[in-house]
């Protein structure tokens, strides 16, 4: 059980880092491009929004691994 929890923590850490990375890249890009490249922003904004929801779920799971 402990091993399973350890593996879950490793995988969750990886997933949270990946989600944060995707969000950071997207937000940095939107910060630079929202005036000049609205098409790009339209494309990535909904995906960014979905990522925030995913991050919320990942963080809940990370804090309560037994649920």
């Amino acid at each position: 059980m402990t091993k399973l929890n350890d593996q879950l923590t490793i995988d969750l850490t990886h997933d949270i880092n990946s989600t944060l990375s995707a969000l950071m890249s997207a937000l940095e890009l939107m910060n630079e491009e929202w005036r000049t490249n609205p098409e790009l922003v339209d494309k990535i904004l909904p995906l960014t929004s979905q990522k925030f929801d995913l991050l919320k779920e990942q963080l809940i799971l990370y804090r309560n691994p037994k649920n």
């Binding site: 990946s18 890249s25 997207a26 940095e28 491009e33």
Partner: peptide
């Protein structure tokens, strides 16, 4: 494999 990461990175690269 992640679409959002790919789009953002591609645009930067």
């Amino acid at each position: 494999d992640d679409l959002l990461s790919r789009l953002s990175l591609k645009s930067r690269l």
